[in-house]
């Protein structure tokens, strides 16, 4: 890989996003709007002794918004790149496979950072979220969620043949992870077989990290964060390997 070539692709992807105000709005306005909806539905529920429900549910759910949004956007954009011939043109030239994949990850990572800052800020003020450890940790987990979505979306684009199929990959790849992540049942209370499955799924570690944050165990997040980073790196390498200089 080459830094200049990677940044060239990242810059191009960001320019494309800038040209598409609806998508850009969807990336920033939609997750903040959904966070507001999440806070609103609990606003008239009786407050349990542990504090407002939004304080415990909000951080667990909020990370799923960037995950899902980035998965869809990345899988479709990358599929277009594969099918429009632009990827073939790039692969005939000096740009490396890693430059393309990392360029996308860098561009969407920057968008994810803005998204995480907007969501965290919005959830604290005006939505009144209070968590026991530093907010930046929650923001960090949300950026990693977005990057997991990006990395999985890049992989999905290698399997899907059409945009229609790419969209269908979302419920297939994301929903089982939500069910197994420990949102509904603690992972340790699940049947052993499912617990093992949840151990290899990235979203489980994102929820683990949020649970540490909510338990006031700020330092506890580093193990799940390291696992998430490793998963993202591994998926990006795998994603780069699905690009081919020669095709049939």
């Amino acid at each position: 890989m080459n830094l200049a070539l990677t940044w060239n692709t990242a810059k191009r992807v960001l320019t494309q996003l800038r040209r598409d105000p609806r998508t850009l709005a969807m990336l920033i306005v939609l997750p903040t709007g959904l966070t507001w909806l999440l806070q609103y539905i609990f606003s008239e529920s009786p407050v349990p002794p542990t504090g407002p429900i939004f304080n415990t549910i909000g951080p667990r759910i909020m990370g799923l918004f960037p995950l899902i949004l980035m998965f869809i956007i990345t899988s479709i954009t990358m599929l277009r790149e594969r099918q429009s011939g632009t990827l073939e043109r790039l692969m005939v030239g000096p740009t490396g496979k890693a430059d393309v994949i990392l360029g996308y990850a860098l561009a969407f990572g920057l968008v994810a950072t803005v998204q995480a800052i907007a969501m965290t800020a919005w959830s604290v003020w005006p939505l009144g979220l209070e968590i026991p450890t530093g907010l930046w940790r929650l923001g960090l987990v949300m950026v990693l969620d977005a990057l997991v979505g990006t990395a999985l979306g890049l992989l999905a684009s290698a399997v899907a043949r059409t945009e229609f199929q790419a969209v269908q990959m979302m419920p297939m790849v994301i929903i089982p992870q939500l069910l197994l992540a420990g949102l509904f049942v603690n992972r340790s209370d699940m049947p052993v077989a499912l617990e093992y499955v949840s151990d290899v799924l990235p979203v489980s570690y994102s929820i683990d990290a949020v649970n540490d944050i909510l338990a006031g165990n700020g330092d506890g997040i580093w193990v799940p964060v390291a696992i998430l980073v490793a998963f993202i790196a591994g998926s990006l390498v795998l994603g780069a390997m699905t690009l081919r200089r020669r095709t049939d």
Binding site: R12, T15, Q16, R19, D20, S84, G85, T86, E88, R89
Partner: peptide, 8 residues
């Protein structure tokens, strides 16, 4: 087929 980015 033109292999360029239509939004740019």
């Amino acid at each position: 087929a033109p292999s360029i980015y239509p939004d740019l």
